[in-house]
């Protein structure tokens, strides 16, 4: 870990900010999810969120969502300053209701995917993604 003092201070500051964010962001998350679901509590099953357990680079984390029969899937990063990441809409001619993209994560946090199904119900899946400063492997 070769770090200049400047980088070090910045990183430490970043870590401190990341530690505080989830609390402050929580209300925003609830609100964003509620906006998408219209206040309905999503169920589980029928949706798969695939994300790495530990991000290789928090600035570009590959995530994939799949929910057969969905009309839309929204992705939220609960610990980011702005939790809503993306909403994918699927028309009736869509061959599969899945999408993949890369997202930026401010720190270790939960990523949540919520799918709106054709019958108007909602299902969700969640994954914790760890963002680490990197270490010393065996």
């Amino acid at each position: 870990m070769e770090l200049t003092r400047r980088q070090t201070l910045l990183t430490a500051a970043g870590a401190a900010v990341a530690a505080v964010l989830p609390l402050r962001g929580y209300a925003a998350v609830e609100e964003s999810v509620a906006t998408f679901t219209g206040g309905v509590e999503p169920g589980s099953g029928g949706i798969t969120l695939t994300a790495p357990e530990i991000a290789e680079n928090g600035n570009t984390v590959p995530v994939e969502v799949s929910a057969p029969g969905a009309v839309a899937i929204a992705v939220f990063a609960l610990g980011n300053p702005v939790p809503p990441v993306a909403t994918f809409n699927f028309g009736p001619l869509a061959a599969s209701q899945s999408a993949s993209t890369r997202i930026r994560l401010a720190g270790t946090q939960e990523v949540v995917a919520v799918a709106k199904m054709a019958d108007g119900s909602f299902v969700a899946d969640r994954k914790e993604v760890k963002v680490t400063i990197g270490g010393c492997g065996g």
Binding site: L3, T4, T8, L9, A12, A15, T132, I133, G135, C136
Partner: peptide, 21 residues
């Protein structure tokens, strides 16, 4: 073999990070 400066706070962050691994 690097030689650098860490704040006490950052040192703790490093130790916590590795301990979690």
């Amino acid at each position: 073999a690097y030689r650098t400066e860490f704040t006490g706070e950052f040192l703790a962050v490093v130790l916590e990070d590795v301990a979690d691994n």
